[in-house]
Nucleic acid binder design. Structure first.
Lengths: 216, 216
DNA sequence: ATTTCTTGTAGAAATAATTCTACAATGCAC
DNA sequence: GTGCATTGTAGAATTATTTCTACAAGAAAT
């Protein structure tokens, strides 16, 4: 028996296979769903601006300050929209950030189809979806700052810079991309290294591997 | 009109959404396909051992020596099997290596549905699928007879320096340890980067992970 | 409400790394 | 066995990065 009809969905994911897979599940679960798809943020905004969407399934491949602000922007355009983040990135590090910015569900790629169905249903029926792990983290973050994944200590901007460093960008490239001065990048780099108690790029790469923040 | 019936497919991908998406495409394209799926290598082997498979669509999330040797092992069990690598990783870096180990197609995630259909059809009909870019690279590597493992090109001293760089040592530290001038270390570094056709430490670390892995 | 901490930003000075060039010794191809 | 490529080595000049300091806005703590 299918659920709640006439809902509208927007799937944003740069892999068309994934878009197809999700849309298939939606069709299985809901009656007369309207399904929109986009492969990039530009199209997503176009659709959001033109069409009322109930649930946005948003794949974030490169978590950074930018994608955080995108969520905020989307919520400004359609405050009622529900956003389900669907990403390969470690939920320990990112889930709380995204929820904090206006998302109301966080699902890891890697999740089973069953979990995805659960998430879709739950988002539509109750407006949110959280795994037990994420729930626990929210509670933890209220109660105490438990010893955690060191990468979590980084601010959004710092994380952004760290990821670029790991990709092999130099200070100058990063400063260009972020439109800040190169000494600013150096300052970030220093703070990153201080927070993580390391002092070279190789160690940073190692740490990120260790904590499984590889994406995909 | 559907193609070539009774073919058997195995989809290995750790994201069930992706598995679903691909299986849907297969159903669109082929008559009576037998579709098997697995979310990890262990299950893949189980299936390969029990069932004859025509086409394995293999998602490799963490390209490394291990996944290379897996391809080889699979081909030992079923020499006739066709393997299509489906991965988010840069084909420039990985495609040749996988093809060299027994895969016969390489498709980037990010590719359109159309390309995936193309790849599936082509794998079944002609046993291979290569993008123009990959074809070019094969020709290049044939003409210049570049060694399979680029690290082998490094001289002993260069290798020594490369290893230290990977451990996180800076130029000055290395020059102290080796009792040479720091500009000498810079020269080595340059030659290493030139030979390996890279230009930053992150790429060096990546290369060494890839080629120096004891998984093979 | 007010201090204190964190975050994002940068300049000046100091230090490190790169580039370009060079050269002798070894290795290897013809 | 002579020429040409590779290897180990550096200096001078140029660039990139780090360090140290600073400051304003916002968050958190008291």
């Amino acid at each position: 028996m299918k659920l709640s009809n006439n809902c509208s969905f927007l799937i944003t994911d740069d892999h068309s296979i994934v878009r197809q897979g999700i849309s298939m599940l939606i069709n299985e679960l809901f009656l007369n769903p309207k399904i929109y798809m986009s492969g990039n943020f530009k199209d997503t905004f176009k659709i959001i601006n033109e069409t009322k969407i109930d649930l946005l399934i948003l794949d974030i491949n490169f978590p950074d300050g930018n994608s955080i602000s995108i969520i905020k922007d989307i919520k400004i355009i359609q405050p009622e929209i529900k956003i389900l983040i669907f990403t390969a990135y470690n939920e320990d590090i990112y889930a709380l950030r995204y929820l904090n910015s206006g998302a109301s569900g966080y699902l890891n790629k890697g999740s089973s189809e069953e979990e995805m169905k659960q998430a879709l249903t739950s988002m539509i029926l109750s407006g949110k979806y959280l795994t037990q792990n994420v729930k626990d983290r929210i509670l933890d973050s209220y109660i105490s700052k438990s010893p955690i994944n060191p990468i979590e200590q980084l601010s959004n901007r710092e994380l952004e810079v760290a990821r670029m460093l790991i990709k092999g960008y130099g200070n100058l490239e990063i400063s260009d991309l972020l439109n800040v001065k190169k000494t600013t990048v150096s300052t970030f780099k220093n703070r990153i290294f201080e927070k993580l108690e390391i002092d070279n790029l190789a160690a940073l790469i190692e740490l990120f591997r260790l904590y499984n923040d590889d994406g995909e």
